[in-house]
Amino acid sequence: MRHIDIDQWERKEHFQFFQSRRNPCMAVTAPVSVKNLLAFRNRCDAAAKPRLSDCLYYAIMHSASSVPELRLRLVDLRPVEFAAVDAAFTYLPRGKSLHANCVAGYDADFSRFVAAMQAAREAADASPTLTPAGGESQGLIYMSNLPDVAFTALSNPWGDPWQDSVPRVVFGKIDKAALTLPVALEVLHSFVDGRHMGLFFERLEAVLADAQRSFPVG
């Protein structure tokens, strides 16, 4: 985590302007192609087929991590840049009707990331909670899945923007005709502009388009 010298920061004026708003959040929802991802999964042997949500969570984390502005946060009221951020995601534990929150370390290696995700799910099965270890960190990307909703816009609950600076990403129901799914990205405009959000979606599409390389199985 690197503290930013705000007086030498190119973004100083923008940060102070938006952070003084009552609601400095900005959200974009866009359809993202999953055509190549679905085709890739259909070619996989049943035993080796990766979980669809794991592929999407990995693609989100990979893409968000590659945009420095999506790794900017507030810690102790000061802007910082995290060198790496981890995954925080919702999950419905076995036998439960309410979701739990999970935290898994992000790894650029897909198989290691999947293992971390599965370990987090198993921990939630054993002891479901909304406040898992590591969940208090700002060095996260919050993610969730609404597989039954083909939403066209979405907003998330936020806390005090001086304490809660983590981007949110939610994906929804696949359009079986277009082979797209909606992805909503919500951020603090204090750190992130529209062009940075555009970079995220561009890189997300690229990861999903090259599914065989992005999600190696064996």
Rank of each mutant, 00 (worst) to 15 (best):
L146D: 06
L181G: 03
P182S: 12
D164T: 09
P147D: 04
P161Y: 06
Q163G: 11
L154C: 06
M143P: 10
D160K: 07
N156F: 13
S165I: 07
A178R: 09
V170R: 05
V187W: 06
D164M: 11
G172K: 00
A184Q: 10
Q163T: 13
L181W: 01
L154F: 11
A177L: 08
V170G: 05
D175W: 01
T152G: 15
V166Y: 02
F151S: 11
D175H: 03
F171H: 14
D160S: 11
V183G: 07
I174H: 05
P161N: 04
P147N: 06
V149N: 11
W162T: 14
D164S: 07
S144L: 00
L154W: 05
K176R: 12
D148E: 15
A178K: 11
T180L: 07
P161G: 07
Q163M: 14
G159F: 01
F151L: 11
D148V: 05
A177R: 13
A177E: 11
S165H: 07
A184C: 15
A178E: 04
F151I: 10
V183P: 04
Q163D: 11
A153G: 15
G172P: 04
F171L: 09
V166P: 08
V166L: 04
A178H: 00
P147Q: 04
L188N: 12
V187G: 09
S155T: 15
P161Q: 02
L154E: 00
W158N: 13
N156R: 15
Q163W: 02
S144V: 03
L146K: 10
K176I: 00
S144K: 02
R168E: 09
A150C: 05
T180N: 13
Q163C: 15
L181F: 01
L179V: 02
A153H: 15
F151M: 10
E186P: 05
S144M: 01
V149K: 12
S165G: 12
A178G: 01
L146N: 07
D160M: 07
F171S: 06
F171P: 04
P167V: 02
V183H: 03
D148A: 12
D175E: 01
L179Y: 00
G159M: 09
V187K: 03
F171I: 02
R168K: 15
D164C: 12
A153W: 13
L181T: 03
W158F: 07
V183I: 07
D160V: 05
D164K: 11
P167K: 04
N145L: 08
P182F: 05
L188M: 10
I174N: 05
L154T: 01
A153V: 06
L185V: 15
K176H: 03
L188P: 01
L181C: 02
V183N: 02
M143D: 12
L185T: 05
K173M: 14
D175N: 15
A177Y: 00
G172N: 00
K176G: 04
P182M: 10
L188H: 13
D160Q: 07
V187C: 14
G159Y: 03
S155Q: 09
A150P: 12
A184V: 09
L181K: 03
D148K: 14
D160G: 09
K176M: 09
P147Y: 03
L154K: 02
V149G: 08
W158K: 15
N156P: 02
